[in-house]
Amino acid sequence: MASSPWGKALRSAAWVAGGTAGAGTAALAYASLIERNLFGVREETVAVLPAGSTPLRVLHLSDIHFVPHQNIKARWLQSLADLEPDLVVNTGDNLSHLEAVPPLLEALKPLMRFPGVYVPGSNDYYGPRLKNPLTYFTGPSKITKDPPALPFGELFGAFEDAGWAGLTNRRDSMTLGGVRLDFSGVDDPHLNRDVYAGFPSADQGSDAPSIRVGVAHAPYQRVLNYFTDGGADLILAGHTHGGQVCVPFYGALVSNCDLPTRLAKGLAVWEHNGRRVPMNVSAGIGTSRFAPVRFACRPEAVLLTLTPRN
């Protein structure tokens, strides 16, 4: 007996549903088991140094979100020391677990012999909680009531002991390769803790030629505008995870702040009041331990080679 049209339609629908479910399962497995561990280094060249300067290599780390026993991530972080950077810039969200500080410091130990600066992110202060991951796509995430506190003092104390300068609503300077780097950093704008301190004045540092570098965890527009209006030559930030779950050939769906999604990762230019400033937003290294997936957005560190302006 011939099959009825309704029977054929139902079988076709079941086949499509089964194929879609299978593809979704495969994509989730790839995102959670494979891509989130495909660590890499994105390399960029930025012409921001004074004429005649020697190039500087800046390693930008962000959003490590470390959890104990992340051995693949730990070994990769240790290997970054082979890049021999002149400076390490850490833009926060180092932790994702109460017991993460000792193993994270062990993973970062080879890098902590280089000069460095850092700013905090919310996941240095507070641990994540389990929640519906779809809320990530409804707008900037919010800190839950009574979030678990993380041992940020232990982490930042170790950074300071290694000589890394904290830029939490502070300005500071250091001279590398004959160039004075004048930094301005803020506490996490995602927590509304940012207080812009300005950049060091030229008469407070050495007589070396200088550039100004703005450093923040979350690249909210108000903070980018502070830095730009203050004369920044370069801005470094993280927080966005590059969108974390992206659409191939399209990009990020969210930035988890008010930054346009087209700027959620990569080297771009921020413009305000007629000034244009190179800005690097890192796609980050980790994820929340309660949403351990990345899709079309591999984890990264960024090696910026600063060269003289043309």
Rank of each mutant, 00 (worst) to 15 (best):
S4I: 08
P5I: 10
K8I: 14
A13T: 12
A14M: 12
V16L: 15
G18M: 00
G19F: 07
A21Y: 02
G22W: 10
A27Q: 09
L28M: 13
N37R: 14
N37K: 00
G40A: 11
A51Y: 00
G52Q: 05
P55C: 04
R57K: 15
V58T: 05
L61K: 12
S62Q: 09
S62A: 15
S62G: 06
F66M: 04
V67C: 04
P68L: 05
K73R: 14
L77P: 05
A81W: 03
D82S: 14
L87N: 10
V89R: 10
N94V: 06
N94A: 14
L98F: 07
E99Q: 14
L104S: 09
A107W: 06
A107Y: 01
L111Q: 09
L111G: 09
P115R: 11
G116N: 05
V119M: 10
G121H: 09
N132D: 15
L134H: 02
T135W: 04
Y136D: 09
Y136E: 09
P140F: 09
L150T: 03
P151E: 08
L155I: 11
A158T: 07
F159P: 07
L167W: 11
T168W: 01
D172N: 13
M174N: 01
T175S: 13
L176Y: 03
G177C: 07
L181S: 03
V186H: 07
D188K: 10
P189R: 11
R193I: 00
V195C: 02
S206C: 02
D207N: 14
A208T: 02
A208K: 11
S210Y: 13
I211W: 04
V213H: 00
Y220T: 12
Q221M: 11
R222G: 02
V223F: 01
L224I: 03
Y226S: 14
L236A: 07
H239A: 11
T240I: 09
H241K: 06
V245I: 15
P248M: 10
G251Y: 08
S255A: 15
C257I: 05
C257K: 11
T261P: 01
L263F: 14
A268G: 06
E271P: 01
H272Q: 12
G274W: 09
R275H: 13
M279Q: 09
N280L: 14
V281E: 04
S288L: 11
V293Q: 07
R294W: 01
R298G: 00
E300K: 04
L304H: 04
T307P: 00
T307L: 08
